[in-house]
């Protein structure tokens, strides 16, 4: 059963308020060389093989539910 990992990130044009705050905290800890912190989501799932291409199916899931095309980008990784 293929395991699939979906990485969902905010579009680079959008301010990532969480990422900015974490970056400030890292700076406060002394890591002043850290820039452009962005926070996203990882969604992992097992998908039973029913004959259809897994990647196409997951892409459809991303477009319909897992990511919001207005604000987010996604990458699909089939872990095998």
């Amino acid at each position: 059963m293929p395991r699939v990992r979906v990485l969902v990130t905010l579009k680079p044009t959008l301010l990532d308020a969480q990422g900015r705050t974490v970056q400030e905290a890292l700076h406060a800890l002394g890591y002043h060389n850290v820039h452009q912190v962005r926070i996203g989501k990882v969604i992992e799932m097992d998908i039973a093989d029913e004959g259809q291409p897994v990647e196409a199916q997951v892409k459809e899931m991303c477009d319909r539910l897992l990511a919001n095309p207005v604000t987010e980008l996604y990458e699909i990784e089939v872990l095998g």
Binding site: L10, L15, Q18, V70
Partner: peptide
Amino acid sequence: LCEAHLLPGALVRNEGL
């Protein structure tokens, strides 16, 4: 309503968190 595409755009985390 935005998620359902009955309205355009989206609502994301407040700027000040």
